[in-house]
């Protein structure tokens, strides 16, 4: 444990935490756009800047250290955040997220040259990072500098996209568009059909590509994933019913799952999964 000071108040922090972590735990407001709890700190939006010894640092990437004296409300911090918001508002004047945040800092209209006709992407890279962490890396940034954008390989339908929609669902400015029906989805211009339940043939909530992807990643058969939750539960229920009738039997026939110790009271079901399923 280390003690750090934020805006004059001391806080206990654990080694390895970032200043932003500590601030969030203690309800100290620090705005951020590219930060996502599930992802490694990125440090790109520069909204979460704080002041440390007169220097501006991004709190999301700043590890806590003994006797740090952090200021989150200094004039310099405010100025930098305002510039960032002014810039973002110029980039995407119609983004609700940016407008709201800018209003908190007293900015209602950018003083800079506003881009009309551009989408609301702020290049926080949450989409690409989420995608990469899942293991598909279907989208990435393309080009450099002020021309940079999020794109698919060669601007075509992304071959590695599995249609999980994580990119769109995590976009802070809701820029990534998709269409969704019970039968399928369209994202990044690529159409996806929902996989059919291997038992009842109803549409599941996973795309065919997701099923293939998860199967490949885990080493389990595709049927394992292509199952609607009703059928899965039904199957489980049947399994348990049989277990009660005939305890000790090896069931879960289809994929060779075994239950170790099976007692009527405490059922601890642990399907043994191949190692490949481990987090990368």
């Amino acid at each position: 444990m280390v003690t750090i000071t934020i805006d004059g108040i001391e806080y206990e922090a654990r080694e390895g935490q970032t200043v932003l972590d500590v601030a969030k735990e203690n309800n100290i407001p620090i705005p951020s756009l590219c930060h996502h709890e599930a992802l490694k700190p990125w440090g790109a939006c520069r909204m979460c800047v704080v002041e440390l010894n007169g220097k501006i640092m991004a709190s999301c990437t700043l590890p806590v250290a003994k006797d740090q004296n952090i200021k989150t409300k200094s004039e310099l911090v405010k100025t930098v955040r305002k510039v960032v918001l002014n810039l973002l508002l110029a980039r995407c004047p119609h983004s609700k997220t940016i407008q709201q945040l800018a209003r908190l800092y007293g900015i209602t209209k950018t003083t800079l040259k506003a881009d009309e006709g551009r989408d609301n992407c702020i290049l926080c890279n949450v989409c690409t990072r989420v995608c990469a962490q899942l293991g598909s890396s279907a989208i990435a940034t393309v080009k450099r500098g002020s021309e940079k954008e999020i794109g698919t390989p060669f601007g075509e339908k992304p071959p590695d996209c599995i249609g999980c929609l994580s990119c769109a669902r995590n976009c802070p400015t809701e820029t990534i568009k998709f269409e969704e029906t019970d039968a399928g989805r369209i994202i990044w211009n690529k159409s996806f059909e929902m996989a059919e339940c291997s038992i009842c043939k109803a549409k599941t909530v996973l795309t065919k590509e997701q099923v293939v992807f998860f199967a490949k990643k885990s080493g389990l058969p595709e049927e394992y994933f292509a199952k609607c939750d009703e059928c899965a539960r039904k199957e489980t229920a049947e399994t348990f019913a049989q277990l009660v009738i005939n305890p000790g039997a090896h069931i879960m026939k289809a994929w060779g799952f075994t239950f170790g110790k099976l007692e009527a009271k405490a059922i601890t079901a642990s399907p043994v999964l191949p190692q490949k399923f481990e987090r990368s």
Partner: peptide, 23 residues
Amino acid sequence: LNEKKCVKCSACLGACPFGNVLL
């Protein structure tokens, strides 16, 4: 399930053999 960390990729939903993660 920590919703702040969930990116809604459906991997858990597919992985549960019992159909117990729901969307």
